[in-house]
Amino acid sequence: MEQESETTMKLFSHPMSSCSRRVRLALHLKGLKYECINVTSVGDPELLKVNPMGYVPALVDGTTEVSDSYAILLYLEEKFPQHALLPQDLIKKSINYQVASIVSSSIQPLQNMTLVNYIGELVSPDEKLPWAQYHIRKGFVALEKLLANHAGKYATGDEIFLADLYLAPQIDNALNRYSVDMTDFPLLLKLNKAYSEVLSFQQILADKPQEPSDFIKLQ
């Protein structure tokens, strides 16, 4: 198994990008050194060299360039085995994959500000928040049921795994960006409380929401 690169990794990121937060959490948990490059403008030329789509996050590890949070997380997991992001138990591992899929495919893209702003233009500005809340709640209903028999202190037990890296930023978005009523999701609230007590989660989730224009290219 390869060990940490001699050169410091670079992560193109944005403080409010939930996908970037997933990767930053993984880097912190694995104790890896990296330079965080916060992208502040659409079409950043340095980012486009790494990811022609212009989305964050994008990771540069020596001569290796990886875009998309899921690909980056699996790359980090393969290369740096410390603090495994996936449990050995096959069932729990499958739950982690399912949580990651629900958040990344069925929630996050539908509440991304690019789409939310488009809904506001296409239908009405008044429909932006209800649209995002509806899709977040729909995903949370599935997550609450999925984790009911598997959660411990964290999503799939008493250790932080891949599912937690997806859940923590998404729950934070729901509460602090989209004002989702969490009454029906006691398990997710319990997990959120546990995340709030972990230093790396505290630091990375501490940034406050900014203007919608800041999220145009965030994924």
Rank of each mutant, 00 (worst) to 15 (best):
K33W: 02
Q219C: 02
L29H: 14
E211T: 15
S69D: 00
Y97L: 05
N51C: 06
D158R: 11
E127Q: 12
L205Y: 10
N176E: 00
K79M: 02
P130H: 10
Q82K: 13
A206W: 01
K138G: 00
L199H: 15
F201Y: 15
K145W: 03
Y75S: 02
A148T: 12
P212T: 12
A168Q: 11
T8K: 14
P212R: 09
D164H: 05
P87W: 13
D207I: 02
A84G: 07
L32C: 07
H14T: 11
L175H: 06
A71W: 02
K30M: 01
N176Y: 12
P45N: 10
S5F: 13
L11T: 06
S67D: 01
P130V: 06
L27Q: 09
D184N: 15
S67W: 05
Q88Y: 10
F201A: 07
K128N: 04
P57T: 04
L110Q: 10
S69I: 02
Q202G: 10
K93L: 03
D44N: 13
F161R: 09
N176R: 15
L187I: 13
Q203N: 14
I204Y: 07
P130K: 10
S200A: 14
M1L: 10
L187P: 03
N117I: 00
K190Q: 13
D181W: 10
P45D: 03
K138T: 09
T114V: 03
L59T: 09
Y118F: 13
P186N: 11
E4I: 14
V66S: 01
